[in-house]
Design a protein around this nucleic acid. Sequence first.
DNA 1: TGCTATTGGTTGCCTGTGCAACGATTGAGG
DNA 2: CCTCAATCGTTGCACAGGCAACCAATAGCA
Lengths: 167, 167
Amino acid sequence: MATGSAAKKRPPDPLVVLEAFLPYRLNVLAGLTSSALAQIYAERYGLSIPAWRVIVTLGQYELRTARDMAPDGVMHKSTVSRAVSALEKRGLVVRRPNLDDRREEWLALTPRGREIYEAVAPEALAVEERLLSVLTSDERRALSSLIEKLTRQARLLAPRDLEEGDA
Amino acid sequence: MATGSAAKKRPPDPLVVLEAFLPYRLNVLAGLTSSALAQIYAERYGLSIPAWRVIVTLGQYELRTARDMAPDGVMHKSTVSRAVSALEKRGLVVRRPNLDDRREEWLALTPRGREIYEAVAPEALAVEERLLSVLTSDERRALSSLIEKLTRQARLLAPRDLEEGDA
DNA sequence: TGCTATTGGTTGCCTGTGCAACGATTGAGG
DNA sequence: CCTCAATCGTTGCACAGGCAACCAATAGCA
């Protein structure tokens, strides 16, 4: 009772309503924002998502190793590796050996790489701002907090085998 | 001033801080929730994400065409087509011709398909609930509203060429 | 009735990426 | 010093999925 009309024909009351299902909605939203962004960094600068992330990280930190690009296993080692190779081939990134530990290599933007970074970054921020423009400052703060809480929780539920982990 | 230490060496103040960039955060969150869910429907039932969506949609609507599976271009025609083929081969879905328009076909779950649906759906909902368990009811409502606003806006910014559109 | 445009769905091709195995280097312990 | 385990990064393999060309069926229009 209270479930509305009882047994119209066969469907035993939908268990999952896809359009209301959080993981689905998050995937759709993330996909749409990626599409919006891709218009900038893919179509205009020929960057893939991993490449874009490498560029931004190097723009942010100046000097990093490939390992640092996937802090929490967001990107796979192999994905980073290939993105870096491609960027190196295009002359946007250089590798320099780390003499203290020759297993890893330092990565940095070349001048041309930084040029691109400085061109793309503001445009990307503009897209973000256009996205957020439908929210008030309070809503933005709430959004940020919600994303953080959910991300923390999702990390607990997701399989841990994304490389070693804690400690 | 107020920006902290001024010019340590070269980096001209990071333009984009990846960890604070909304599209990035959304992608990470969506990826993690997908991983958490995949443990259920992939590892335990051998379903891909598209297959899972087809199953859920048919569990919800009982009778749909392949076209209906991608209401807003979230999934590609070809993706749906291949997912349906695979499910048909496994005997979880059947096709029946639509005599009114023989271009399209009706899709429905077989009894075995519905069995799986009824087994997977509650588990998927449980994962969703575990995710949401860190939020209060107020926060859940806020989240839902924020996702909807952002999705609507993102749809405006994303390239429209995902099939025809408006009208 | 014929002719063209549109739509639902399939398939070949190509790219991107996860996985696992590997080589190179380092660190720990006897 | 030597050996074994762990770590950074690369690469071959396989598969998923986007794109575009295509087929079949329908609709619009003369």
